[in-house]
Amino acid sequence: MASSSSYRIAVFASGQGSNFQALVESSRAGKLGSTEIVLLVCDKPQAPVVERARQAGVDTFLFTPKGYARREDYEAEIVAELEKHQVDLIVLAGYMRLLTSVLVEPYAGKMINIHPSLLPAFPGKDAIGQAWEYGVKVTGVTVHLVDGGMDTGTVVAQEAVPLLPDDDIQTLEDRIHQAEKRLYPQVVSWFASGRVIVEGRKVTVRQ
Rank of each mutant, 00 (worst) to 15 (best):
Q130W: 08
C42H: 05
L39F: 04
R97G: 01
S101G: 08
L62Q: 01
V79T: 03
P116Y: 07
D88I: 05
G135A: 10
A29N: 11
E83N: 13
L99I: 06
Q46K: 15
L118N: 00
V136W: 10
L82S: 04
I78V: 15
L118W: 06
G135Q: 12
G17T: 11
G109V: 06
A93C: 13
V104W: 05
K125W: 14
D73R: 05
A13Q: 11
T139E: 10
A47Y: 07
Q21E: 15
C42K: 07
K137A: 15
Y68H: 09
L32T: 09
Y107K: 00
Y7M: 13
M111H: 01
I90Q: 01
T35R: 04
E51G: 12
T64W: 00
A76C: 07
I78R: 00
T35A: 15
P120Y: 08
G15Q: 15
G15S: 15
T100N: 01
E72D: 13
V79Y: 00
E72F: 01
A80I: 10
F61Q: 09
K31Y: 10
V24A: 04
A76E: 13
A108I: 06
L119G: 04
G57T: 07
L92H: 03
A108S: 14
L119C: 05
P106A: 06
T100F: 00
L32W: 00
G57I: 08
N19P: 09
M96P: 07
S117N: 10
V102K: 10
A80G: 06
G67K: 12
R52F: 02
F12S: 11
F20G: 09
G135H: 08
K31T: 09
G67M: 06
F12T: 11
K66L: 14
A127F: 04
R28H: 12
P106F: 08
E81D: 08
Q21V: 12
G140F: 01
L119V: 05
L99W: 00
D59M: 09
K84E: 13
L82A: 06
F61L: 15
V38N: 03
M111W: 03
S117E: 09
D59I: 07
E81N: 10
V41P: 02
P120L: 07
Y107M: 12
R8D: 09
K137W: 07
L39Y: 03
L32S: 04
L82P: 00
A10T: 13
E25A: 13
V38S: 08
P45M: 10
S27D: 06
S6M: 13
A47M: 12
S14H: 12
F61C: 09
W132K: 06
S18F: 07
K125S: 14
D73E: 14
V79Q: 00
K110W: 06
L23Q: 05
V102G: 03
L103N: 02
F122S: 01
T139N: 10
K84W: 01
F20I: 11
Q130H: 14
L119M: 08
Q130D: 11
I37P: 05
L62P: 00
V138A: 04
P48H: 05
P106H: 07
N113K: 01
F63D: 03
A47E: 09
M96H: 07
F61Y: 15
G124V: 12
G57S: 07
Q16K: 14
L92M: 14
I78G: 02
V50C: 13
D59E: 15
I37R: 00
V49R: 02
V79I: 12
L62G: 01
